[in-house]
Amino acid sequence: MDIGIIGLGQMGREMAARLIDSGHALTVYNRTAAATQRFRGRARIASSAAEAAGAEVVITMLADDAAVESVWLRQKLIPRGIHVNMATVSLALTRELARAHHQYVAAPVFGRPAAAAKGELDIIAAGPKAAVERCRPLFEALARQVFVAGETPEQAAAVKIARNFLLATVIESLGEAFALVGKAHVSPETFLHILTSTSLAAPVYKSYGRQMVEGAYEPAQFSMELGLKDLELALSAAREKGVVMPTAELIRKNLLDAIAQGNGRKDWTALAEYLGSKGSG
């Protein structure tokens, strides 16, 4: 399949490499050209986003609404074929892109760069049925599971935003729980073992709990700043849909406070470290 990809950050570059290894022909574009160098000789290096948008399918994997808007809306860029936005963006921007691009598929992903490199992401897709089906080959190269949320792109965006909010609640609650047992002189390792050997043996508790026990916050796999962005997206969607999310408000405040103390570039699981220090006095 002839695929363009716009955005070669931590996720985008691993996705691009995986697609090349799976036999797809890629045209890659990144605003800073240095990120494209690892693909020289393996993919066509585009000099502009418009060049990448000329592919049969173009993937966007950018950091936030502002970055996506700057590429697509400010330049009034129109894809030649299907536009698959795999970034996490707001409901409002999703609707705007769907209006502007006839074949627009929202397909945000669950998983970190290591999962992208191995083709083990989970993808939530929504958009015109024929466009989603045409994208199956690239989804299958990147993902272990593909879920179709519906035929309206906003549906996939809503699922992604809601699930990321749930991940934030896990980090917040684990951080609070570690702080509590720590004051009772229970070792973090013992507490994590008990949690993950009983009814909380889910992968997210194991992976986030392990990061907290080891203090493995740098380099960040997903930074606090990006976590805050996701909380803002959840609260924006909640206001739009008339939903009250007091837990999201609490986590947002804690993230803002932790970032103000210089932790913004640490992994968002470092929120546990901040929560543990709050009551240290």
Results as ranks from 00 to 15, higher is better:
Phe110Asn: 12
Ile194Thr: 14
Ala87Glu: 04
Ser197Gln: 11
Glu214His: 09
Gly4Asn: 01
Leu77Cys: 02
Ala258Gln: 00
Glu214Leu: 14
Tyr205Gln: 08
Arg95Thr: 15
Thr88Trp: 02
Cys135Phe: 01
Ser47Phe: 09
Val181Phe: 12
Met224Pro: 06
Asp267Arg: 02
Leu226Tyr: 06
Glu232Ala: 09
Ala216Asp: 15
Val170Phe: 04
Met212Val: 10
Lys266Cys: 03
Leu235Ser: 05
Glu69Phe: 09
Tyr104Asn: 05
Ser187Ala: 15
Pro219Phe: 06
Phe139His: 00
Gly111Asn: 13
Ala53Glu: 01
Asp21Met: 03
Asp267His: 01
Asn85His: 11
Gly227Ile: 02
Gly41Asn: 11
Gln75Trp: 08
Gly119Pro: 06
Trp72Asp: 01
Ala248Asn: 07
Asn85Leu: 12
Arg239Pro: 02
Ala216Leu: 13
Asp257Asn: 14
Lys160Ala: 07
Lys160Trp: 04
Lys206Phe: 15
Thr32Ser: 15
Val57Pro: 01
Glu96Gly: 10
Pro128His: 07
Ile123Lys: 02
Glu51Ile: 01
Asp257Ala: 15
Ser173His: 06
Lys160Asp: 07
Trp268Tyr: 15
Gln37Thr: 13
Ala67Cys: 08
Ser207Gln: 14
Glu120His: 13
Gly9Trp: 01
Lys129Gln: 12
Ala50Tyr: 03
Gln37Met: 08
Ala34Glu: 15
Arg13Met: 12
Leu167Cys: 14
Ala184Gln: 14
Phe191His: 12
